[in-house]
Design a protein around this nucleic acid. Structure first.
Lengths: 253, 253
DNA sequence: TTGACATATATCCGTATCGCACATAAGTAA
DNA sequence: TTACTTATGTGCGATACGGATATATGTCAA
C-alpha cells in the first residue's frame, strides 16, 4: 500500500474502525464423533442459541496472542494445537456493530477436552455431524448434550463447517490427527480419530500399514490396560525423520 | 461470545480499534515462473521496498467486497479467481499504527496479468522464487523486472511465501490451475503452469493421462496456431461431472 | 488347566495408479 | 521428399492400496 493510499485511509481513521475478535473452535473426539465446546447464550442477540468462545483482540496484542489468551481464559489450556482457520467479515454478522472475527481451530485430546469442560462450566460439549461426504464441504448439524439439534449464533455454523472441512482436508496427509490423541495411543484409537473426522470407515490392515509406513509412529513396547481381549501395543507420535513429510506449517516454516 | 464478554469489549470500543486492510497477491505465470504484481514504495515506511496492492476495509463493507473492490481499483479486473489466504496481525507489522490485514490470493491468466500492468502503471511484475522444495514451506525470493532480488515492505514476504505454499498445496488436487490459463489452452501449457507452481518437472505422458482422467478437460477439436511443428490440440476447462471432484470451496459450498 | 472368544497383528493377492521408455503421428521447412 | 520437432498413444515394471484371510495373544469361564 502506498503512502497516499494509507493517508487516504488514515484520514478515514477519523471514521469508524471495525471491532476485531477471535473465535475458537475447540475440537475433540467424543464417542466416535467430532465434538466442540460451545456456550449457550442467554442475552440478545441470538438468545437460546449457542456460540463459540471468543474475545476481542487488544490494540497491542497480536492475533496469535489473542487466540492463545482466549484459549487460556476460556478453557484453561495452554498447549493445544492452534491454527488460524479463516476470517469472517460479513457486514451484518453481528447485529450490534461491525465485528470482523478471525476464527481459530484448536485441537484437544480427550483429557484436554474434559479438563476444559471442568474448568469452564459455561462450556458444553456439542457433537458435530457433517451433512456431506468427502471434502465437498457444506453445512453441518450441531447436536447438544441431549442429542437434539441446536441452533448456532451469528455465523458460527459456517465457522464450524469450515473447521471440519479444513480438518478433513488435511488429516490424511498431515499429522494433525495426533493432536487429537493422548501421548500414548493404539493404532485402533488413531484409526477411530481418522474415521470420526473423515466420516468414513477404513480397512484396518491398510490403515495400519499406511500409518506405520509414514514413519510417525514409535512403538513403545507397552500395551493398553484393562481390555478383556488381547491388548494392543501403545505407540507414541514422533515427527518424521524424513519420509513422506508433507509438513504442517505453523505459518510458512 | 457472551453478552458480558461483548459488553466488556464494547466498553473497550471507547478504546482504540485496529485498522483492517486487505492486501492482494495478484499472481500469474511469466516466463515459466510464478510472478506477482507489486508496487515500489517511495515514502515512509519502507521506502525503496516493494509492497502488495491493498486498501482499507470500509466500515460498511464486507471483506469479500473489499478484496473485490481493490482488485477492481488497482488492476481493473473483475472476474479473477479470488480466495482468502490468511490474516496477518503482528502488532508491529506496520510501524505507523496497528493494522491487521486480510491477505487474498488472486489468480490471473497471462492476458489478465498483462492487462493489469497496462491499467495501473504503478504495478510491476516480480518473479517469485521458492527457496524450498515440495510443500515444506519457507521463505521466498522476489526478483524484480531486471532480475535482481528486491526487498519487500511490511510482512509482505511472508504473505507471498504463504501464497505460493497454498497454491502448491492445492494445485495438484483442485482445479485452481485453470484460473492461471486462458479459455483455450494446450496440455503443454497446463503442464507448464503446474511445473511453475510446483517447482518440479513432470513426466509428460503421465501428466497428460492424469489430467485427462480427471474429466476436467474438454477437447475442442481446434489446434494451436503458428507453431513450426505439429500443433497441439486446444482444450477447454469444464467443471467435473462427478469423478475425482475434490471440489474447491469458495467458502464451504 | 483348558477351551471359547475377541481383538491385534501379519500375509497374500488382485487392481488401480504412476513413472518411464518407446513408438507413432502430424505439422514446418529446406 | 526428407529432416526435424513436438504432440500423441502404448506397453511395461514398480508401487500403493483395498480386501480377504490366516495367525497370535490376551481375558474369561468352566
Amino acid at each position: 500500500m502506498t503512502e497516499a493510499d494509507f493517508l487516504s485511509g488514515y484520514d478515514a481513521s477519523a471514521y469508524e474502525h471495525p471491532s476485531v475478535t477471535v473465535d475458537l473452535v475447540l475440537l475433540g473426539i467424543r464417542e466416535g464423533r467430532p465434538a466442540v465446546l460451545l456456550q449457550p447464550r442467554e442475552e440478545e442477540p441470538f438468545p437460546g442459541r449457542w456460540a463459540l468462545p471468543g474475545g476481542f483482540v487488544g490494540i497491542a496484542e497480536s492475533l496469535d496472542d489473542a487466540a492463545q489468551r482466549v484459549l487460556h481464559d476460556k478453557a484453561r489450556l495452554d498447549d493445544a494445537h492452534l491454527e488460524q482457520l479463516y476470517t469472517f467479515g460479513a457486514v451484518d454478522r453481528d447485529p450490534r456493530t461491525r465485528v470482523i472475527t478471525v476464527a481459530w481451530l484448536a485441537l484437544l485430546d480427550e483429557r484436554a477436552f474434559a479438563a476444559a469442560l471442568v474448568a469452564n462450566p459455561a462450556l458444553r460439549p456439542v457433537a458435530i455431524q457433517a451433512d456431506w461426504t468427502g471434502e465437498t464441504g457444506g453445512p453441518i448439524t450441531a447436536l447438544g448434550p441431549g442429542g437434539a439439534a441446536i441452533d448456532l449464533a451469528f455465523d458460527h455454523g459456517q465457522i464450524l463447517a469450515m473447521a471440519l472441512l479444513r480438518l478433513r482436508g488435511k488429516i490424511d496427509y498431515s499429522d494433525v490427527g495426533f493432536a487429537l490423541l493422548p501421548d500414548l495411543f493404539t493404532l485402533r484409537q488413531l484409526q477411530d480419530v481418522h474415521e470420526a473426522i473423515g466420516g468414513t470407515a477404513f480397512n484396518k490392515p491398510a490403515f495400519r500399514r499406511r500409518m506405520l509406513d509414514r514413519g510417525w509412529l514409535a512403538p513403545t513396547g507397552l500395551r493398553e490396560q484393562g481390555t478383556s481381549f488381547r491388548p494392543a501395543e501403545l505407540y507414541r507420535f514422533q515427527r518424521a525423520g524424513r519420509p513422506n513429510t508433507r509438513s504442517l506449517h505453523p505459518l510458512i516454516g
